[in-house]
């Protein structure tokens, strides 16, 4: 193995299994380490401190270059508000002219993302769900990736959470959390009437849950929000979304046959399926936000 082979020959031998190292542990412990050659070696903090002038000139030059590129890009942008801009095409006209009539939502953005482009939003919710599932795969604690030291740390954290002498954070969380969650619910339910909707409202609810969990600890949170409720809420939200939106596929992608009653535009119970879809998206986003927090801090929901 000392002679130099070409990369392809190495690969062939590796695939055939000829390059197996016997006693790999012994080999790893005895081999000489490769000298690491990286740019960090040349540009240490010491080097920067010695050559302050060069560093200043370089940083100013790079900043000026970037500013020039950005300004030139801004200069070549079409004028704001021009009627002949490429953004002003028939799609925008259609949305603005017949958006309320076709979707029943006063908030055009909600009408767009939850009616015209509902499948796009469905994909986004699935992406969130998949991301949190990947984090669960990697970080959820079980017998194989769990040491006694971690358990001791978690017990210390619980001790600090429960035996607080000056519970300023807990009193604050008690005051603020209900208001935050209430505001999130308002944003979700008013998604088709005012700016907001499932994603922003769900994020606000998730922030409220994170605040509560960080003030009162994992154990108190698990009295009403366990891993089972988390998966149930996420999966039922996604399935409801899927069922609500499949109707337009099964009716020929054109809402033919059965028309959902739109109601009077401006009422809270209007605009067809947009309200339940907003609720589904909001639940998924809230669970995802809290799930990320809980998994990254404690390794368990």
């Amino acid at each position: 193995m000392d002679e130099k082979k070409s990369f392809l020959k190495h690969l062939e031998a590796w695939v055939d299994g000829e390059e197996v190292i016997l006693d790999a542990d012994k080999y790893i412990s005895t081999r000489t380490k490769k000298e690491k050659r990286s740019w960090r070696h040349h540009f240490t903090i010491q080097y920067v401190k010695e050559n302050k002038k060069l560093y200043g000139i370089l940083s100013i030059g790079i900043s000026v270059l970037f500013i020039a590129i950005m300004l030139s890009v801004v200069n070549s942008l079409p004028e704001y508000g021009n009627a002949h801009n490429p953004a002003n095409n028939e799609v925008m006209e259609r949305y603005l002219e017949s958006g309320i009539e076709e979707t029943g939502a006063i908030n055009f953005v909600a009408g767009m993302i939850l009616d015209y482009r509902a499948f796009d939003t469905f994909g986004e919710s699935n992406v969130l769900f998949l991301a949190v599932m990947c984090v669960v795969l990697l970080l959820k604690k079980d017998k194989n990736n769990y040491s006694e030291q971690e358990e001791q740390e978690i017990q210390e954290d619980d001790y600090f959470d429960t035996n607080e002498k000056h519970p300023i954070l807990q009193i604050g969380a008690k005051l603020i959390t209900p208001l935050v969650i209430l505001y999130g619910i308002y944003v979700i339910l008013n998604g088709h009437l005012s700016p907001g909707g499932g994603f922003s409202g769900g994020t606000i609810i998730g922030a409220g849950l994170i605040l509560y969990a960080s003030a009162y600890g994992q154990k108190k949170m698990q009295s009403f929000f366990t891993f089972r409720t988390f998966t149930k809420i996420c999966v039922s939200g996604l399935l409801t979304y899927c069922a609500c939106k499949s109707y337009s596929f099964f009716t020929g992608a054109n809402h033919v046959g059965y028309e959902i009653p739109k109601g009077i535009a401006g009422n809270i119970l209007s605009s067809g399926f947009i309200l339940p879809l907003n609720i589904c998206v909001g639940l998924i986003v809230a669970c995802t936000m809290y799930g990320f927090y809980a998994l990254f801090t404690k390794g368990d929901i």
Binding site: I168, L169, G172, A173, L175, I176
Partner: peptide
């Protein structure tokens, strides 16, 4: 109100 309630708590933590 929200900022003056939440910022001292965060600072304290």
């Amino acid at each position: 109100l929200f900022f003056w309630l939440s910022a001292p708590i965060a600072t304290h933590s």
